[in-house]
Design a protein around this nucleic acid. Structure first.
Length: 469
RNA sequence: GCCCCGAUGGUGUAGUGGCCUAUCAUGCAGCCCUGUCGAGGCUGCGACCCGGGUUCAAAUCCCGGUCGGGGCGCCA
């Protein structure tokens, strides 16, 4: 539940439910108007117990037929679960529940003794997904009814955590001098090559949805903005169907001038350290809610363990040796696949960087130093990944700032430099060496919340077969 | 794109050719009781994905379709 300290009264309530549950001791006898969803409606006689929930808490409203208009009383008494109801009444201390002999009474709680009420909107029955029911609901049904799914406390908590993670990450970057930018999501041509783009019509012109802000954030840095970040959508028309892929996802990107790969790895580990520290300091309550649910499902609780920095760096060449030693079938030059990551994760279970990948496996804009060669003689790059366990969180690197090398890289990868003039022109008039990365927000949230599927932490996910709601 | 698996009331499930006019929970409707509090008690409602086939007999076996899940590839 959210802390509503500082919230102003609105047309539909004088107080939040959280105000009353937390400040009830000083409010006894005070008249309040609160609004919320009807979680349960008990009582069929002269009295009625209405459990109301808003985003800040839940509280019992106590109704007596004698104390109010009978028609209104009946309308509340027959209200369906999840209907929205507004009540006005006085704050009172709740009568303590019966407890078994010898057990201590719980701390005092407060309720609202109702004098007038109104059903604001009826909920149809039955609910397609139960909000408080003790039955598991499949993810697909939940996503079809996300508006109701979000009313479940642990789901709500996960999205509050998502907002916090973005807030803390953003704050940290700002303290390091990064400024927030926005780049276009409608682009004219293949931005990077590689993955498939969603085509679209831009008036009479063929256009695409952007797969990454990569080239544009580089142009911003070349233009002298020094340090930039963007939190925005990226679109990939890949027909994957896994727990960690979506066709639309939010990418947390940075790019900084006068930096190399090691510099931006530093930014990243400091940012993640800051996010984890802040969550541990401020948001344990949200983690507790998630854990309560996990426990009810027989899952282990998650704990917010602030990772030590610096994170381990396992250069590609070393990673290959670790995989080989662990029995993996891999050669220098091969991609490190998920099952290989399992072997590495056994040794490095937390966050770890995998720097210095072969140039042949990295995009054209990644920088390389000619003298840096792998164990088998292949050209190394200044590209890196950040993994957590088996999952890739980030891809980043120092960028190629020498325009002649950049154009040669394009040719090496079968691309036409002329097609990238909008980009390469940015390098023709002096270009600072620079570096950056892109982080999958939902993947980071999976680590923090223990979610087993990115869809859990994305409001309205877009995957291979889902475009609605 | 490849490989596996699955589909039973609103939701989550039991079911392994006849014991299925289909189990349990939750839900919903109604009644009783009640300053309740994970309320309780009683009664009722509600389902075998679609189309073919095998069989005396199909929720169950076979084929096709649709939808969903998992894994891989690729990536964030």
């Amino acid at each position: 539940m959210r802390d509503s300290g500082g919230w102003k009264p609105t047309a539909y309530r004088s107080h939040t439910i959280g105000d009353v549950t937390s400040g009830g001791a000083d409010m006894i006898g005070e008249e309040v108007t609160i609004s919320g969803y009807a979680e349960t409606v008990r009582g069929r006689g002269a009295i009625c117990f209405l459990m109301l929930r808003d985003g800040t808490g839940r509280i019992q409203a106590f109704l007596k037929r004698d104390n109010m208009d009978e028609t209104v009383f009946d309308s509340i008494q027959s209200a369906t679960r999840e209907s929205t109801i507004q009540v006005t009444g006085t704050v009172a201390q709740k009568r303590p529940p019966k407890v078994p002999e010898g057990e201590p009474l719980p701390p005092p709680e407060y309720e609202v003794s109702v004098t007038s009420a109104a059903v604001l909107a009826d909920a149809a029955t039955p609910l397609p997904v139960g909000v408080t029911d003790e039955v598991n609901v499949g993810l697909d049904v939940r996503l079809d009814n996300r508006h109701l799914d979000l009313r479940r406390e642990h789901v709500n908590a996960m999205f509050q955590l998502r907002s916090k993670v973005l807030q803390y990450g953003r704050n940290h970057l700002i303290t390091e001098g990064f400024q927030e930018i926005n780049t276009p999501k409608i682009i004219a041509a293949a931005a990077e090559g590689g993955t498939n783009l969603f085509p679209m019509k831009y008036f009479e012109t063929d256009a695409y949805l952007s797969q990454s802000p990569q080239l544009y954030k580089q142009l911003a840095v070349l233009g002298g903005l020094e340090r930039v970040f963007e939190i925005g959508p990226a679109f990939r028309a890949e027909k994957h169907d896994t727990y960690r892929h979506l066709n639309e996802f939010i990418s947390f990107d940075i790019e900084g001038a006068w930096m190399n790969d090691e510099d931006v790895m530093g930014v990243q580990e400091r940012m993640i350290h800051h996010i984890w520290s802040e969550v541990a300091a401020n948001d344990q309550g949200l983690i507790d809610v998630v854990n309560e649910y996990r426990e009810s499902q027989g899952q282990d609780p998650v704990s917010v363990e602030v990772p030590n920095i610096p994170f381990p760096r396992i250069p590609y060449c070393d990673a290959i040796e670790i995989v080989k030693a662990g029995g993996g079938d891999i050669e220098w030059g091969d991609d490190i696949e998920s099952h290989h990551c399992d072997i590495i994760a056994a040794e490095y279970p937390g966050f770890h960087f995998l720097p210095r990948w072969p140039m042949s496996m990295k995009p054209f804009y990644i920088h390389h130093k000619e003298e840096e060669k792998g164990s088998s003689g292949g050209q190394l790059s200044r590209g890196f990944d950040l993994n957590y366990g088996r999952d890739e969180m980030t891809s980043g690197g120092q960028r190629e700032h020498r325009v002649d090398v950049l154009e040669q890289n394009l040719r090496n990868m079968g691309l036409e430099p002329e097609d990238f003039n909008f980009y390469t022109d940015g390098f023709r008039y002096g270009a600072p060496p620079h570096a950056g990365w892109g982080l999958g927000v939902a993947r980071l949230l999976m680590v923090l919340t223990g979610a087993g599927n990115v869809r859990e932490v994305v409001l309205f996910p877009r995957d291979r077969s889902r475009v609605t709601p």
